[in-house]
Design a protein around this nucleic acid. Sequence first.
DNA 1: CATAGTGTCATAATAAACTAAGACACTAAG
DNA 2: CTTAGTGTCTTAGTTTATTATGACACTATG
Lengths: 129, 129
Amino acid sequence: MNFTGANAIYQQIGNYVCENILRGTWAEGGKIPSIRELAVSIEVNPNTVLRSYNLLKEKDIIQDRRGLGYFVAGDGVEKTRRLLTDEFVTGELPRVFRTMDLLRLGIEDLKSHYLKYRREHQRTERSES
Amino acid sequence: MNFTGANAIYQQIGNYVCENILRGTWAEGGKIPSIRELAVSIEVNPNTVLRSYNLLKEKDIIQDRRGLGYFVAGDGVEKTRRLLTDEFVTGELPRVFRTMDLLRLGIEDLKSHYLKYRREHQRTERSES
DNA sequence: CATAGTGTCATAATAAACTAAGACACTAAG
DNA sequence: CTTAGTGTCTTAGTTTATTATGACACTATG
């Protein structure tokens, strides 16, 4: 985990979990790291991880079974994809376009930066297609 | 001012100032609202505005004249444009592209959302071209 | 010189995020 | 039953951003 300092840690942990679900690293219905386990591995207080997990539990992305741990929901991938896509399209993209407007950048600039990024980064594999 | 709660207020004030400079609302070399004045108008503590102004002063975007107030630097527009463009291209865009990757969105999706945004929003006028 | 408007600084108080430490209840496995 | 690994909760302390006040120095204006 690389914490940015820009956002709250519990939110960044939430993103970390969502990424692992979307990438298929953590399978649907499968167990995810326990609160204490994750807290130790990313050097953070268990209470902070608990807060992140609670957030995702409310959104039905993960479920808890007392005494056992947390598990990815059966439809966790779809739930996560829907949620993040919605946040991205209605929240982040408009802000990006607004900044582009302010800086006088057009779709061509955006595209060239994207292509440059594509050249320099491998697309991650997905467990199932 | 619409504060997001996501970022710190003093950063949002900084963005607000940069926007007014880039849009030409506040001319190069011209006076900008005094600390107390801006603090009252956006209902924020003067110390918070001071912090924002200090940040922009360090970046040579604005200058202070004791007893008179703050003024946009002579090359304020260029300085601001360079700074924000750099932050956008090296900081924000890579994060956006990474999220797109995660959500399996391509350049076509990006373009269509951009065009939709363009249809719904007027590009702001600039004082000088 | 007096005044009003400016930037600057110092101190204290508040709120939110995070940390620290420990206690309790639940579950599976020996 | 005992144990180890879980989630949950409480209380207290720390850090950072922000607010609240007030004071001081500077500048233009009358």
